[in-house]
Design a protein around this nucleic acid. Structure first.
Lengths: 223, 223
DNA sequence: CGGATTCAATACACATGTGTATGGTGGTAA
DNA sequence: TTACCACCATACACATGTGTATTGAATCCG
């Protein structure tokens, strides 16, 4: 414990010295409460009980903090995806685990959900965040696709269904994040989506797809 | 044209005087680019070619601007919903119009989409925005439910399917807003969702819904 | 014409934010 | 002990933001 130890597992409590990860964790708290725009250095330092001088030792500047956070986020999301499907169990159980992971395991991990939504929000105006989100999205959709492909050999249909499955879960996250989203409805949605997968399987969606129907929906502008 | 005219249709070009709505429109521009946190008074005034003194004549303070914007947004979203379903045409065409409205009519109305996402983002930390979003969500889901109920008398199933339909479209908005979301995939998703509705109809989703499957997905924290 | 009203420019006081330069403190090693 | 280094505090310069008070220029109206 005296000599070189990869500085991996030290929490704030053991060692009074702050680590880079401590700052990132505190930043996550601010992000949960107010999005990325709430990540400002002075409030962050206050929360950690230090002054700004400490920050500029651990990070080059504000952008460095944001970049580091995004990197860590992407890496963790990728890792948790790899952790999924340890053995080849059945599709039902796997689907359930995926939905639990993406939809939030019954009330808990609302923090994780809010962080992800904040990252998505940032991605609309920041290239680095956009790349991270794109990578994670692609990985998750591919994961689902591979899962569905184990039941039937239909790459096209599997891709479509996994895409639909994915946007449905993400949309459920978003809509149910507000006060309108009660826990019961979210659970109901989870069962709905699960049913969609297990019933249709990958070989489904023989929809009819013409264009047609001119719409008269101009409405107002945005705003 | 000389006497009282409800000051409804005057744009910035005709009259050099700025109206409250002009400020709100400019604010929409900032919101599209940088979210609600980008709505600051000085950049807004610069964009309109005036100084901040003008702002504080039209609005009491910054909060007043945000509140007015949210009010107008909710009112317009409600109005455009009423405008839908002028006559009782078939379900296919109506579904198509709804998806076009929610998903964005092929590339255009990306502004409207971004504004909505920004409002949703704000709703996570602002009660007023949360109420507006909740009202709009509820209205839209009810609208879809009523539409589906015209095909089969199954309130429960119609509610479920409309909910699923809704979160799928919102999720598609969110996921496809980034650079990962190409136009083709979005169109594909639209057909997928449309197929889901027209194929299943309201009387569907006889899924199997147990809980089961203990998950070993702890992973990291958020961040 | 003259006064009231509407809309906008300017000036001021204050708060908050960033980044840098510099100084201080405790632990470690020669 | 002394020198060094990791970590943090303090002070400064500067930028940006809000809100208010005051002044100014059109415009409407009696």
């Amino acid at each position: 414990m005296t000599t070189a130890q990869g500085d991996g597992g030290r929490r704030r409590s053991e060692r009074e010295q702050l680590s880079r990860d401590d700052w990132l964790d505190a930043a996550a708290g601010l992000i949960v409460e107010g999005g990325f725009d709430a990540v400002r250095i002075l409030p962050l330092a206050r929360r950690l009980g230090v002054s700004r001088g400490s920050f500029y030792w651990h990070f080059r500047d504000h952008q460095d903090l944001v970049s580091s956070f995004l990197q860590r986020w992407q890496q963790r999301r990728m890792a948790e995806l790899e952790l999924l499907t340890p053995a080849g169990d059945d599709l039902r159980a796997e689907t359930h685990r995926i939905l639990r992971l993406l939809l939030g395991e019954s009330g808990r991990s609302v923090r994780r959900m809010r962080v992800e939504l904040a990252v998505r929000d940032l991605a609309r105006r920041d290239d680095e965040a956009a790349r991270a989100v794109a990578a994670v999205d692609e990985a998750r959709i591919r994961h689902n696709q591979n899962l569905l492909l184990r039941s039937a050999d239909d790459p096209e249909g599997a891709r479509d269904l996994s895409l639909l499955l994915y946007v449905a879960t993400i949309g459920a996250q978003l809509v149910m994040a507000g006060p309108a989203g009660d826990e019961a409805t979210l659970a109901r949605l989870e069962r709905l989506i699960a049913g969609l997968v297990s019933r249709d399987g990958p070989a489904a969606l023989q929809w009819c797809g013409e264009e047609g129907a001119p719409d008269g929906t101009e409405g107002y502008g945005d705003g």
